[in-house]
């Protein structure tokens, strides 16, 4: 089954690519609805921590304010769809909020916080389940397109195809 949430996340990653950002996109699903859509805004904000997942968390916080919901309660029911394995920072933030689940596309060989660099789940008493490999070829192609282009800021990544 082609997943519409991952399609949305991939659209956001494509948008990031067009904006000259590392193409990673993410959507948060709560009760069957999209409550946050994020992509990397690292160059735009000059803040290297502004990854798609953190942007989605900020949006969720705003959404909770507007809709008078408790942030922690909402986050614990959120399904995260993100095109690339969350980095150590984002994976930790997601575990700490006990999100219901994380579905991601391709591996993140440089910074991955699930299987690639450090399994952050081991650092949290009640970690969230993470599953990778969904639409990973499309997610990886976007990264390859990005690193093929001119990028003065980042070193060349060692991108590999997911093997599972």
């Amino acid at each position: 089954m082609v997943n519409k949430w991952m399609d949305e996340a991939l659209d956001l990653a494509t948008e990031a690519l067009k904006a000259g950002e590392v193409p990673v996109g993410c959507v948060f699903i709560y009760n069957g609805d999209v409550i946050a859509k994020g992509r990397n805004t690292v160059n735009e904000t000059r803040n290297a921590t502004r990854h798609a997942e953190l942007n989605c968390m900020d949006q969720t916080a705003e959404w909770c304010m507007e809709n008078v919901h408790d942030f922690a309660t909402v986050m614990s029911a959120v399904q995260v769809w993100v095109t690339v394995e969350p980095c150590i920072m984002c994976a930790s933030a997601l575990h700490s909020l006990h999100v219901a689940g994380v579905m991601y596309g391709c591996k993140n060989d440089r910074f991955g916080g699930h299987i690639s660099v450090l399994n952050t789940a081991l650092l949290f008493p009640d970690p969230s389940p993470m599953v990778g490999g969904l639409e990973s070829d499309r997610a990886m192609q976007l990264l390859k397109d990005f690193y093929k282009g001119t990028n003065a800021n980042a070193p060349h990544p060692k991108v590999k195809k997911i093997t599972t």
């Binding site: 803040n47 290297a48 921590t49 980095c87 150590i88 920072m89 930790s92 933030a93 700490s96 910074f111 916080g113 952050t120 650092l123």
Partner: peptide
């Protein structure tokens, strides 16, 4: 720092 913050400082060099 926690692991999130520690990694944020790696990203920020």
């Amino acid at each position: 720092p926690c692991v999130m913050c520690a990694m944020a400082m790696v990203h920020s060099r």
